[in-house]
């Protein structure tokens, strides 16, 4: 079987061309895609910290087929979604989402009036801004996006943007651009030590610094980290968020975990599997070899024991 290489669709071309009918239909049928999108949207809504039992008007940037919008509906909010792919919006319409759909390019600015929304979410979309298209270079597109996002949010509203940065430079480019637009807040990284489950959330606060604003805690137990906060918002956003997060304590943490794993692997399994070179493992290997008709030494009380250190 060929090894599966994880590719970045952003490198293949503009979003409106990548998300064609075929790609849009994947979001209609792939339960894996639906599950991932929905869980990220749920996490984003949680971090929006909306007042309870109050229906709000929310914006979904890069709403696609409306999977994230449905999470907003379940919470009892009304939403408007914009996306650059007309095919994705077509699928959203087929799925009869309740939100209002608008075909627009976030890189040219969001087409809404000042203070229209009580909050905004975006799932796996804003990394697309890091690539040029006919409408300008990444810096300009990011600037127009964050400036317009700041404008369309009510003062004191939050925006939670989940995205996939390709490298540290992109992360820096995005967070710096958000800060220049006037946002407070910072980066929350869920499951920072897992390659697959690791998720970047940019949690932004529009308006003046609020004493009641606290950064959400990242998921992933003790390993999780969140960068920035109300008081240190500027430093969190400005000082290269990726590096700022990897302080010495975090690095040590990783090292310890690694060491622990190396020690543990001899004695005990980690995922319910039998540890290599253990007595049980040898017995299993021997059994398998016997089944294949190979000549195998007989089992005894010495099987799997270490050799004596005594030399003769």
């Amino acid at each position: 079987m060929a090894t599966k290489v994880r590719t970045r669709p952003e490198e293949s071309g503009p979003a409106d061309i990548f998300y064609n009918e075929t790609e849009a239909n994947k979001y209609l049928h792939s339960s894996r895609m639906i599950e991932v999108q929905t869980s990220m949207a749920e996490r984003a809504v949680e971090m929006l910290c909306l007042p309870e039992d109050t229906p709000c008007l929310l914006l979904d940037v890069g709403c696609g087929t409306g999977l994230s919008g449905e999470v907003l509906e379940e919470e009892g909010h009304a939403w408007m979604g914009c996306d650059i792919s007309r095919d994705m919006l077509g699928v959203a319409q087929q799925r009869e989402v309740e939100g209002e759909l608008i075909h627009s390019d976030m890189g040219t600015g969001l087409p809404f009036r000042q203070g229209a929304f009580d909050g905004a979410i975006s799932i796996s979309a804003i990394q697309w801004l890091c690539y040029s298209n006919d409408e300008g270079n990444p810096r300009l597109r990011l600037h127009r996006f964050f400036q317009s996002l700041y404008r369309v949010l009510r003062r004191g509203a939050r925006a939670v943007l989940q995205f996939y940065p390709q490298n540290a430079e992109q992360l820096q480019l995005i967070t710096a651009s958000a800060m220049r637009a006037g946002f407070g807040g910072g980066l929350v990284i869920d499951f920072p030590h897992s390659t697959k489950a690791k998720k970047y959330f940019l949690v932004l606060l529009a308006g003046p610094p609020d004493a009641g604003f606290s950064m959400p805690t990242a998921l992933g137990e003790s390993d999780a980290m969140s960068v920035g906060g109300a008081s240190s918002a500027a430093s969190g956003l400005g000082g290269g968020a990726a590096d700022a997060g990897a302080s010495s304590s975090v690095r040590n943490d990783g090292r310890k975990r690694h060491a622990r794993r190396a020690m543990g692997s001899r004695e005990k399994s980690r995922h319910g599997k039998i540890a290599k070179k253990s007595r049980e493992w040898i017995a299993l290997k021997k059994e398998a070899a016997r089944r294949h008709g190979k000549e195998v030494t007989h089992d005894s009380k010495y099987s799997g024991r270490k050799r004596s250190k005594v030399s003769f």
Binding site: M80, E100, I102, T108, G109, P111, F112, R113, R144, S148
Partner: peptide, 9 residues
């Protein structure tokens, strides 16, 4: 939606 929409840029 129309009430919230404005011409971008």
């Amino acid at each position: 939606t129309h009430n919230m929409l404005m011409s971008p840029g």
